[in-house]
Design a protein around this nucleic acid. Structure first.
Lengths: 172, 172
DNA sequence: TACCATTAGTCGGATGTCCAACTATCTGAC
DNA sequence: GTCAGATAGTTGGACATCCGACTAATGGTA
């Protein structure tokens, strides 16, 4: 499935700090940015791995979980796929893929849009709702992959990364 | 190839902040962690997209670029694939995949390990070195996808994410 | 009313990452 | 010395993501 076992061994050195030293030693510029980009990549790998591992018992992945949660927040318990792509900020074909899998698992169903025959709604099923709630318990218990990180740094993560997201037009 | 165009339009609202509000409204816990995990995911998407787009002219991706840079830092300009997996913190099969592509492009070549017949070294070629240098110029110019972010926040990104990496045993 | 540009989804192809399993080789214990 | 266990890489399969291209439907304009 999609677990990805995170290093069970403690690294003897900080590999990113070491990479930065090599960078500087060679006289290459922007080593701070290199370290930041690499840190983001690694943090993503760590968090995603833990989340997917925790979702394994529910036959879910983070992508599918996010989609399911998004739909559950809607008034009708249904959303057009295009709208989902906008909210989740992923490509339309990724949404198609995600909904395909959720639908195959009986957690959502495709229903025609009432007024626009081009559009399709993904509607969450009863099974989808109960699966989502159980999965959410699991997510809360591992704190979305940040279980061993103190609450204060967790908040700072969001705060700092807002700058990156702002640079991409994510924030007004 | 691997570009991924980042949203060219400015979002009218902060989607992650909105997701957090929905989370809280429903009474779900750990919304701060949810926001942080989602921010990491999005930041990764943004940075990786910009980097890969900048590497496009060099027929490289971030994975391949990182591998190439790592090899270039070695004394002999060659490293066992297993060692690369450890340093880059990726699965052995990912290294095989990456080296396959770099080799197909003539940027590295597989050479037998001098004393261990199980092992294979990835050795950077002259073409690989020159391609790496050009690609590095491009990376510096976009500051590894963080071009529009001030230097100070960039440093804070690495600092905060050390906590996440520490929780995974990445830091001594 | 007719038509062309835009929008919604989907299909096929490419990339990267991971896991399970397998072959070849090395190594330490008996 | 021999042999079981560990290590190095590879192969095949599963996922998620993106892009280009295509079909169907909508909509504003002439």
């Amino acid at each position: 499935m999609v677990r990805t076992k995170i290093a069970l061994v403690t690294q003897p050195v900080d590999l990113i700090a070491e990479a930065k030293r090599n960078w500087d030693k060679r006289g290459w510029a922007e080593s701070d940015a290199m370290a930041a980009a690499t840190s983001i990549t690694r943090a993503h790998q760590i968090v995603l791995s833990r989340i997917n591992q925790a979702l394994l018992p529910f036959e879910l992945t983070f992508s599918r979980y996010e989609a399911l949660a998004l739909i559950s927040f809607s008034r009708e318990g249904a959303l057009p796929l295009g709208k989902m792509g906008e909210r989740l900020q992923v490509h339309p074909t990724s949404v198609t893929n995600t909904i395909d899998r959720l639908e195959a698992d009986g957690l959502v169903e495709r229903v025609p849009h009432p007024s626009d025959r081009r559009a399709t709604l993904a509607k969450i099923t009863g099974e989808g709702m109960s699966r989502l709630e159980k999965a959410t318990d699991a997510m809360e218990s591992i704190r979305f992959g940040l279980g061993q990180v103190d609450p204060e740094p967790v908040i700072r993560i969001t705060d700092v990364l807002v700058e990156v997201r702002r640079s991409a037009g994510d924030v007004p």
